[in-house]
Amino acid sequence: MDLTVVAYVIYLLISLGLTVWVARTLSRNGRVFLADVLHGNEKLADAVNHLLVVGFYLVNLGFIALYLQDDTTIADARGVFEALSRKLGVVLLVLGVMHLGNVYALNKFRRRGMMALDRTPPVQPQGYAGPQGSWAPPAAGH
């Protein structure tokens, strides 16, 4: 068997395995984070989590497939290792960037949700401060 084909098979096996592992890790741990971001709405958290995982798979598997082709001819075992290290290194960097992008986006959603909660006053105002700063007591009987 041609060593280039051997390198392709090893590259695909390792890349696919890494993609599945990272996606499962993101899905499992991201669900808890999404539930917090979405204020305990478990059903919506599961739906968003699933959509994020599908998008993660599509982008990464597409990249792995496009990056498979290599114009160099591999002549020996050293060439196999060099080609694999180059290809897998790039795949790992792309997986890392995708992971950081997901975490950044989720954190941004979480901050936006927390800011919305902070805008709500803890208690209703008890009186009215006039334009000159004078205080008017609440109406009688309230």
Rank of each mutant, 00 (worst) to 15 (best):
G55D: 01
L38W: 01
M115A: 13
I10S: 00
V32I: 13
E42R: 15
T72S: 14
Y11L: 03
N41H: 13
F63W: 07
V5G: 01
N107V: 12
A75T: 15
I10H: 01
H99N: 06
P121G: 05
A35S: 11
V20W: 09
G89N: 06
L51D: 09
P122D: 10
G113L: 02
L93F: 12
N60R: 02
L44K: 10
S134E: 01
L66I: 13
A116G: 03
N107W: 10
M98R: 08
K43H: 07
D70T: 04
G17Y: 06
A129R: 07
L51R: 15
V91G: 01
V54S: 06
N102T: 15
G55H: 04
L92G: 06
A47F: 12
V54R: 06
R78E: 10
R111W: 10
F56M: 04
A139K: 09
S15R: 03
A65M: 09
T25L: 10
A129W: 05
Y67E: 06
L18D: 02
Y8S: 10
D70C: 06
I14R: 03
Q69K: 13
P125Q: 06
V6I: 14
G130R: 01
L117D: 10
G130A: 02
D76E: 09
D46T: 13
L84R: 02
I10K: 02
R110H: 15
V20F: 14
M1Y: 09
W135Y: 08
N60F: 04
F63P: 02
F81N: 08
D71E: 14
V123G: 00
H50I: 13
A140M: 09
R111K: 14
L58S: 11
V9A: 14
Q126N: 09
L51K: 14
A136R: 01
F63S: 03
A75P: 00
H142G: 11
R31K: 15
L95Q: 03
T73S: 13
F33I: 15
A83D: 04
L106S: 09
A139E: 13
D2M: 11
L26Q: 05
V48M: 04
L51A: 15
F56A: 05
V94Y: 00
A47N: 09
P125M: 06
G30M: 07
Q132D: 01
Q132V: 00
L61F: 15
A105T: 14
F109R: 04
V48A: 03
Y57T: 06
T72M: 08
M98Y: 04
D46E: 15
A83I: 03
Q69L: 15
M115F: 11
V54L: 12
V53L: 08
D46H: 08
G62T: 03
M1S: 13
A136V: 00
D70V: 11
T4K: 13
L61E: 05
Y8P: 00
A75H: 14
V48I: 14
G127S: 12
W135Q: 01
L51C: 06
L84Q: 02
T120P: 00
P131I: 07
H39K: 10
R86V: 11
R86S: 08
A139R: 13
N107R: 15
